[in-house]
């Protein structure tokens, strides 16, 4: 690997120490943050075509 990406990735991970027993790498913390953000967006973002009526309920399988 060469270039700016290697400068960014080919280095030892930076760790954050919250307490004496809990530590997490910045990379893992970013991934967890992205997952939480995706989850919030998935819960509240409007779904295309889902704003209309109850007529779509005709196929209920339950």
């Amino acid at each position: 690997m060469s270039g700016w990406l290697s400068d960014f990735m080919n280095v030892p991970a930076t760790y954050i120490h919250f307490t004496s027993w809990l530590q997490i790498s910045v990379a893992n913390l970013i991934v967890i943050g992205v997952m939480v953000a995706l989850f919030i967006i998935a819960m509240f973002a409007p779904f295309p075509g889902s704003h209309s009526t109850d007529s779509q309920t005709s196929g209920d399988q339950s």
């Binding site: 998935a42 819960m43 075509g49 779509q56 309920t57 005709s58 196929g59 339950s62």
Partner: peptide, 16 residues
Amino acid sequence: LPDTQPAYVASWIYIF
């Protein structure tokens, strides 16, 4: 192989 689903299936959670 259904061709219709309840309205509440239109959710990003199922896309994931």
